[in-house]
Amino acid sequence: MTAVVFIPARYASTRYPGKPLVELTGATGEKKSLIRRSWEAAKAVEGIDAVYVLTDDDRIRAASEAFGAEVIMTSSEARNGTERCAEGVAKLPDEPEIVVNLQGDAPLTPAWFVADLVAHMRANPGAQMATPVLPTEADTLANFVTDRKEGRVGGTTAVMRADGTAIYFSKEVLPYVGSLETPPKVWHHVGCYAYRPGALRAYAGWPEGPLEQAEGLEQLRFLENGWDVACVPVEGRGRVFWELNNPVDVERIESVLKKEGIA
């Protein structure tokens, strides 16, 4: 099955304007933009046929082309990355069988997360949409709880049925964490999705639902329209996964880049 990776990126982020062009310092002291680090993460995945940056902003287009990325320009009307992916797949000359949406604010996404997601889609032809989930490490869970206490929106958590399909996703910490000493198992939702092209076409035809609007989480539109979202557990292998959602996350991500020796 052919598989492509799309990296949706927009300049006008509500919480962090200009986020894709924010520079992050790696282990060698070299500064690279967030969008470049996300592209390099996508290029490291085996079994992917092509990687594209999707944007409606000429500043992001120019920066991406400067480091060698292929860019597909999409409209400014796309409300989220999934809608932007639906536009992007329609512009490809040949329709792939699997489309991966690697969020442009997740440069720490390990290659095996994406590979495991694509493998799940290839092994389960009936799956229309899937996303990785990761058991939270102690430090990550502490960051979740701290962010919410201080009024920031940090990462996203997932709650699943026994068969691995999603019940809900939230920017709150779910289930409730009464104590960090003896916390329940909390699943960190990884900002990455895989779809069949038909699922993207269906998604683009649905209006935003109240849960999606309340949480600001695009994947909830599938749940609100009765579609299953397969949650694919992945292994951290000691890598701390964190997204760049707020300015405070720059230091968190740079510390991981240095710890992991990522240039």
Rank of each mutant, 00 (worst) to 15 (best):
V5P: 04
V5R: 02
F6P: 10
P8H: 13
A9F: 12
S13H: 14
T14A: 14
T14D: 12
Y16P: 07
P20Y: 03
G26L: 08
A27M: 07
A27D: 09
T28E: 10
L34R: 01
V51S: 08
A66Y: 04
A69P: 13
E70C: 06
I72P: 10
N80I: 07
T82C: 07
K91R: 15
D94S: 13
P96Q: 02
V100L: 05
V100I: 13
Q103K: 03
G104T: 07
G104Y: 08
D105V: 04
L108N: 04
L108D: 01
V114H: 01
V114D: 04
A115Q: 15
A115N: 06
L117Y: 01
A119I: 04
H120K: 06
A123H: 02
G126H: 03
G126M: 01
Q128T: 03
T131L: 08
T131K: 01
A138G: 11
N143C: 10
N143D: 13
N143Y: 13
F144Q: 10
E150H: 11
E150K: 12
E150W: 01
G151D: 08
R152V: 09
G154D: 00
G155R: 02
T156F: 04
T157R: 05
R161W: 11
Y168W: 12
F169H: 14
F169Y: 15
L174P: 00
L180I: 05
E181C: 00
T182L: 05
K185D: 12
V186T: 06
W187D: 03
H189S: 10
Y193H: 13
P197V: 12
G198H: 03
R201C: 00
Y203E: 01
G205P: 00
E208I: 11
E208G: 09
P210V: 08
E212K: 12
A214F: 10
G216H: 07
R221H: 03
V232H: 07
G236P: 03
R239C: 02
V240F: 09
V248S: 13
S255Q: 14
K259Y: 12
G261V: 04
